[in-house]
Amino acid sequence: MMPDLGKYAVEVLSSYAVSLLLLLALLLMTFARGRRVRQQMQEMEQQMQGPGGTPRG
């Protein structure tokens, strides 16, 4: 059910499309960064452990 947008239909619908694309891009960037940070944290944890899996310190 589409409301009648009159002569501004193209502008309104294109602004919705651009907004949805920007939100999708932001979501994908957030997930990618989370994956990258999680991998870096695992690498740091492995570096902090000494030989045999015992924590250094």
Score class of each variant (00 low, 15 high):
residue 50 G to Y: 01
residue 39 Q to E: 13
residue 5 L to I: 03
residue 17 A to E: 08
residue 38 R to E: 11
residue 42 Q to V: 06
residue 8 Y to P: 00
residue 26 L to C: 13
residue 20 L to Y: 03
residue 3 P to H: 03
residue 13 L to H: 00
residue 8 Y to K: 11
residue 45 E to S: 13
residue 29 M to D: 12
residue 57 G to F: 06
residue 45 E to K: 10
residue 42 Q to H: 10
residue 10 V to L: 07
residue 11 E to T: 05
residue 19 S to K: 08
residue 8 Y to N: 09
residue 32 A to H: 10
residue 40 Q to L: 10
residue 34 G to N: 05
residue 28 L to N: 06
residue 50 G to S: 05
residue 39 Q to I: 13
residue 44 M to F: 11
residue 37 V to R: 04
residue 41 M to Q: 15
residue 48 M to N: 14
residue 52 G to R: 01
residue 30 T to N: 08
residue 30 T to K: 07
residue 31 F to R: 12
residue 13 L to V: 04
residue 39 Q to F: 14
residue 27 L to V: 04
residue 11 E to F: 02
residue 23 L to T: 07
residue 57 G to M: 04
residue 41 M to H: 14
residue 4 D to W: 11
residue 48 M to E: 14
residue 36 R to H: 13
residue 7 K to E: 08
residue 41 M to P: 01
residue 49 Q to E: 15
residue 6 G to D: 00
residue 21 L to S: 10
residue 53 G to I: 05
residue 44 M to Y: 09
residue 19 S to L: 10
residue 23 L to N: 09
residue 51 P to N: 09
residue 27 L to N: 02
residue 43 E to Q: 15
residue 13 L to Q: 05
residue 27 L to C: 08
residue 26 L to A: 15
residue 27 L to Q: 05
residue 29 M to I: 13
residue 39 Q to W: 10
residue 28 L to C: 11
residue 37 V to E: 06
residue 14 S to W: 04
residue 8 Y to S: 10
residue 51 P to Y: 02
residue 37 V to Q: 04
residue 53 G to V: 04
residue 43 E to K: 08
residue 6 G to Q: 01
residue 32 A to T: 12
residue 7 K to Y: 11
residue 28 L to V: 10
residue 43 E to T: 08
residue 13 L to A: 01
residue 31 F to V: 12
residue 56 R to I: 11
residue 42 Q to L: 13
residue 44 M to N: 12
residue 37 V to W: 05
residue 9 A to L: 03
residue 29 M to Y: 09
residue 4 D to E: 14
residue 12 V to H: 00
residue 57 G to Q: 06
residue 18 V to R: 04
residue 21 L to W: 06
residue 55 P to W: 15
residue 46 Q to F: 09
residue 55 P to A: 14
residue 53 G to Q: 08
residue 47 Q to P: 03
residue 2 M to A: 15
residue 34 G to Y: 02
residue 16 Y to W: 13
residue 35 R to S: 13
residue 42 Q to K: 11
residue 55 P to T: 11
residue 18 V to D: 03
residue 40 Q to P: 01
residue 17 A to K: 07
residue 10 V to Y: 05
residue 32 A to M: 11
residue 1 M to E: 15
residue 14 S to T: 08
residue 31 F to C: 14
residue 38 R to C: 12
residue 53 G to K: 06
residue 21 L to V: 09
residue 14 S to F: 05
residue 12 V to S: 00
residue 37 V to N: 02
residue 48 M to L: 15
residue 32 A to D: 07
residue 52 G to H: 04
residue 1 M to A: 15
residue 9 A to G: 03
residue 5 L to S: 01
residue 1 M to H: 14
residue 14 S to E: 09
residue 36 R to Q: 13
residue 18 V to G: 00
residue 25 A to Q: 07
residue 44 M to E: 15
residue 56 R to H: 10
residue 8 Y to R: 09
residue 20 L to N: 01
residue 48 M to S: 15
residue 44 M to D: 14
residue 18 V to T: 06
residue 33 R to Q: 12
residue 21 L to M: 13
residue 4 D to T: 09
residue 52 G to C: 06
residue 22 L to T: 03
residue 6 G to C: 02
residue 23 L to F: 10
residue 54 T to Q: 15
residue 43 E to D: 13
residue 25 A to D: 04
residue 11 E to S: 02
residue 34 G to M: 05
residue 20 L to P: 00
residue 22 L to Y: 02
residue 56 R to C: 11
residue 27 L to H: 05
residue 26 L to N: 04
residue 38 R to Q: 14
residue 8 Y to Q: 10
residue 38 R to T: 11
residue 11 E to R: 02
residue 5 L to M: 07
residue 51 P to K: 09
